[in-house]
Amino acid sequence: MIPVQLASFFTAAALILIGIIGVFFIDNLIKKVIALSFISDGVNLFLVTLGYKPGGIVYIYMPGMSSSWFAQNASYPLPFALVLTSIVIGASTLAVMLAIIIILYHRHGSLSSKILED
């Protein structure tokens, strides 16, 4: 069995690659946006995986824990904090893109990326 962390890294790489290929080859604009969200999700997964610790505990210091035991077993909190911010930013970018696509659809009556060609 592959370790969880390694498997997650591979998944992240696969997501990024699928996203790049999708942005390049898929014609439909909304599908392009989905491909872009694949890229950012891949990167987010990569960040989360960095903080993973096999057999680790949640990084919340509860009463009664010895501080050295906590320091040895808690997973690394920084990547999780970063991922939250990154997800929020990604969501807002996607929202702006989708809003523009709606307007372009009303103007051109098409979701094909050919409208971005001229």
Partner: peptide, 12 residues
């Protein structure tokens, strides 16, 4: 040019 296909091609 402003063609999106060409832009993304050169970016990648």
């Amino acid at each position: 040019t402003d063609s999106f296909y060409k832009m993304i091609f050169y970016v990648i």
